[in-house]
C-alpha cells in the first residue's frame, strides 16, 4: 500500500509570546516544527504500513528551509520525501496550495491513501485536505480518530461534535486525522542518522507541470487586506475578601449573566 502524507512547517506556538504592551506576537527566535496534527498523520501512515506493508512518502510545499520537517519525517521512519519549492508558490491561499500539492502528488503517481492533519495550527482552516481530494477526484474522510484496513477497504471513525461516524471507503481516499488517533513516535537513533544522509527530492513548478496562473498568489482567489490586533479586556474585576464573600458576589454575577 502506497501512502502519501501531506505535512506543513509551522511556527511552534508554544514558544510564541505576546508583547505585553502592543499585544502583538513576538516572533523572534520562534522555532519551526512539523504541524502537530501532521505528526499524527505520519504516525498513522507508519502504523498502516507496519500492518499491511507498503511505502510512505511525505510531501510538503514551502521555502527551502521546509526541508527540515521532511528530515524529521524521515527520522520517524518514512521511506521518501518530496519538497515542492518555487518562488511561484509564494503567497498561496488554500485553493492554490491544494492545487500545487495535488500536482506534486500526481507526479509521485501511484498512491492508495493520502493522509494529512485535520488542520495546520497557524492558519487553522482545515481546507487544504479536502481541496487536494477534490483536485484529484477522490473521496475524503475528515477528522478521523481511528482507521484500519478491512478486506481491501479502509474503515474510518470520523469525529463529530457529539459522537462519531463509521465510514467504509474504497481506495484511493484522502483522510485527515485528529490528534486522538495516536501518539506520534519519537525518531529512533537509526532514523536520525538516515535522515541526515537522505536525498530529498525537490521539485519546482515546471517539474510538477503546474500552471503558474493557479499557484501562489496569482492562483489565490482570497486576498488579505488588513491585519489588526483584537481589543483585549485587560482589566478584570477582582473579587476580593473572604472566600465566602467572593463566592457570594460571583454567584450573583453568574445568576445575573445567565438570565
Amino acid at each position: 500500500m502506497n501512502i502519501i502524507v501531506c505535512i506543513k512547517q509551522v511556527p511552534d506556538t508554544t514558544d510564541v509570546k505576546i508583547h505585553p504592551e502592543t499585544n502583538t506576537l513576538i516572533r523572534d527566535g520562534v522555532k519551526s516544527i512539523v504541524n502537530p496534527f501532521d505528526a499524527n498523520a505520519l504516525e498513522a501512515a507508519l502504523q498502516l504500513k507496519e500492518a499491511v506493508g507498503g511505502k510512505v512518502t511525505a510531501i510538503t510545499m514551502g521555502p527551502s528551509q521546509a526541508i527540515d520537517i521532511l528530515r524529521e519525517a524521515v527520522a520517524m521512519g518514512i521511506d521518501d520525501a518530496v519538497l515542492l519549492s518555487d518562488r511561484a508558490f509564494a503567497g498561496a491561499d488554500t485553493l492554490a496550495t491544494a492545487y500545487t500539492l495535488a500536482m506534486g502528488i500526481r507526479k509521485i503517481g501511484d498512491y492508495d491513501l493520502i493522509i494529512g492533519g485535520k488542520q495546520a495550527i497557524d492558519g487553522d482552516t482545515a481546507q487544504v485536505g479536502p481541496g487536494i481530494a477534490e483536485q484529484l477526484g477522490i473521496p475524503q474522510v475528515t477528522y478521523a480518530k481511528h482507521m484500519k484496513m478491512d478486506d481491501g477497504m479502509l474503515l474510518v471513525e470520523r469525529m463529530l461534535e457529539d459522537g462519531y461516524e463509521v465510514i467504509k471507503t474504497a481506495l484511493p481516499v484522502l483522510v485527515t486525522v485528529v490528534k486522538q488517533i495516536n501518539e506520534p513516535r519519537y525518531p529512533s537513533l537509526r532514523g536520525l542518522l538516515a535522515a541526515k544522509k537522505k536525498e530529498i527530492t525537490v521539485w519546482n513548478a515546471a517539474d510538477i507541470g503546474a500552471d503558474e496562473k493557479r499557484t501562489g498568489l496569482a492562483g489565490s482567489p482570497t486576498r488579505v487586506v488588513s491585519i489588526f490586533t483584537p481589543q483585549r479586556n485587560t482589566k478584570a474585576v477582582m473579587l476580593e475578601g473572604e472566600p465566602e464573600k467572593a463566592v457570594e458576589t460571583l454567584a450573583e454575577v453568574i445568576t445575573k449573566l445567565n438570565i
Binding site: 502583538t24 482567489p221 487586506v225 491585519i227 490586533t229
Partner: peptide
C-alpha cells in the same frame, strides 16, 4: 477571522471569484 491562535485578526476579500 482570527489568525495565529486569535492573537491577530485578518480581513480577507475574494475580489475576482
Amino acid at each position: 477571522r482570527p489568525a495565529f491562535g486569535g492573537n491577530i485578526m485578518a480581513t480577507i476579500l475574494c475580489p475576482y471569484h
